[in-house]
């Protein structure tokens, strides 16, 4: 019984925490890249945000670190593949890779793009705020990104260059081509 109660509480906490994160997102500001909890094996990234109305956004990119013994350390993401693992991390602090860059869109459709370089393996967070003319934050979205070392990129699957299974018709076609040519 206690186990069931604990599981229900844990699920509720996770649901509520994610709902808090997403309740105030602007439907007209869409983070195209990176994907939420996506993984890249690179030291650079293209941030792309689509804005569907004239408005002002502020974009910041942080590395999430954990405080251990009073020191902020990069999170070891090599063994973390689950979104749940990341959501359960505690004692986090955000170190800006770049902080609160303002982009003003005057069109019905525009894109904020920025190439971020020199990022090291770890957990990152892209924060996009929609602000009014006075700078007050109206909406916020947070997108998490896992950066792993290039050497950890999965190798091509063994099946990549296995000969495709030919249909009977293809086998017959190949047979006649071999005899009569094209």
């Amino acid at each position: 019984m206690k186990k069931y109660v604990f599981a229900i509480v844990l699920i509720m906490i996770m649901l509520i925490s994610t709902s808090i994160a997403f309740a105030d997102t602007d439907p007209n500001v869409i983070v195209v890249n990176p994907d939420q909890y996506g993984t890249i094996y690179s030291d650079s990234l293209l941030v792309s945000v689509k804005i569907l109305e004239p408005k002002t956004i502020k974009v910041a990119f942080y590395e999430e670190k954990q405080i251990k013994n009073g020191v902020a350390v990069a999170i070891n993401v090599n063994n973390i593949n689950e979104q749940l693992d990341l959501a359960e991390l505690k004692d986090l602090t955000s170190e800006p890779v770049y902080d609160k860059e303002t982009f003003v869109s005057t069109n019905k459709l525009s894109f904020y793009t920025k190439r971020v370089e020199g990022i090291t393996p770890g957990l990152y967070r892209l924060r996009v705020d929609t602000v009014d003319s006075g700078g007050k934050i109206l909406f916020t979205s947070n997108t998490h990104l896992i950066v792993k070392d290039k050497s950890l990129e999965p190798a091509a699957e063994e099946s990549l260059f296995k000969a495709p299974q030919l249909t009977t018709m293809q086998i017959l076609q190949n047979f006649f081509k071999n005899i009569f040519g094209n």
């Binding site: 869409i30 195209v32 293209l46 792309s48 689509k50 894109f111 793009t113």
Partner: peptide, 11 residues
């Protein structure tokens, strides 16, 4: 000069 596929920019 960095290039990315258009799908990364535009979705």
């Amino acid at each position: 000069d960095p290039y990315f596929p258009m799908r990364v920019f535009l979705g």
